[in-house]
């Protein structure tokens, strides 16, 4: 990476901070809204500094949104689905990226087609299918459709990053007598660590926030997920803004944690030595 002069470093910090402030402004309003009373918000205006501070929104959100149960469900589905989905996608992406075979383009096109499919048209057929399989209204009933829906993007991303791995590395491994499985596990996956972390972040977020499929496929309280709980913040005729935003803040904690944990794999040069062989 190029070195910066001192004044450049300062300029960069200033620009980055201004951009950060703009990006953060709506977030600040979310926090402000979450820690005040609805009456204060409505009277003093939504952008004013909170005058009547209250953490009641958090308490109510936790209780109304049934976070004690729904958090468990969301964590269960996320920690199983995300690794499993990325595993399945990366397995499929390896041949699509690195092998030459006749059906390759057709298969890739088929997987790619999925990114253009609007979720809503798959809901009815899938709920009929899940019902036949006895998986409707279970977490397993979310597991498989979630994987299917994530595959197109993940295969596209994995295929792209796997392609940047030099063929020479793979050829050398073949000569050493490595099996395809070993090459995938010991060469491809470790080299694609930054990409896999990026996918992990993206997919964890998508899974954690997924709403429509969970809404249609799950109706029992005991299997609902966090995004469904947030529906309970709204009454028929009006909404409590502090409760909604407090609930939102509670709900995004795991996603932020995952992000902060995984972004450390974005360290430049980590693969440099490996590629040189």
């Amino acid at each position: 990476m190029t070195q910066l002069k001192t004044w450049e470093r300062w300029a960069l910090y200033i620009v980055l901070t201004i951009v950060a402030a703009i990006f953060l402004f709506p977030f600040v309003i979310v926090v402000f809204t979450a820690i005040r009373t609805q009456g204060d918000l409505m009277r003093s205006g939504v952008f004013s500094l909170p005058r009547e501070l209250s953490l009641d929104g958090f308490r109510q959100a936790w209780y109304l949104g049934r976070f004690n149960v729904y958090y468990r469900n969301s964590i269960l589905i996320s920690v199983t689905k995300v690794p499993a989905g990325i595993l399945v996608a990366s397995l499929a992406a390896y041949p699509l990226a690195k092998w030459n075979f006749r059906a390759r383009d057709t298969l890739f096109l088929m997987f790619l087609a999925g990114i253009g499919v609007p979720l809503h048209v798959t809901l009815l057929p899938n709920s009929i299918l899940l019902k036949k399989m006895g998986l409707l209204d279970t977490l397993a009933g979310l597991f498989f459709p979630y994987i299917a829906y994530g595959l197109p993007l993940q295969i596209l991303v994995c295929r792209g990053f796997f392609r940047t791995i030099p063929d020479e590395l793979i050829d050398a491994a073949y000569i050493d007598g490595c099996s395809d499985g070993r090459i995938y596990w010991n060469i491809i996956l470790p080299l694609a660590k930054p990409a896999i972390s990026a996918l992990f972040i993206i997919d964890f977020l998508a899974t954690w926030n997924e709403f429509m499929m969970a809404l249609i496929f799950v109706h029992s309280d005991k299997w609902k997920t966090v995004p469904l709980g947030m529906m309970y913040f709204q009454g028929q005729f009006s909404a409590s803004y502090p409760v909604i935003n407090a609930g939102v803040l509670i709900s995004i904690v795991p996603v932020l944690l995952i992000y902060i944990m995984l972004q450390r794999y974005f360290v430049s040069g980590i693969t440099a030595g490996a590629i040189k062989g």
Partner: peptide, 21 residues
């Protein structure tokens, strides 16, 4: 077999609904 898990899950929960729609 690398492609198999993806094909099975994708076929059931994506290709079939697409065909249905």
């Amino acid at each position: 077999w690398f492609l198999l898990p993806a094909l099975v899950i994708y076929g059931m929960f994506m290709i079939y609904p697409m065909f249905h729609s």
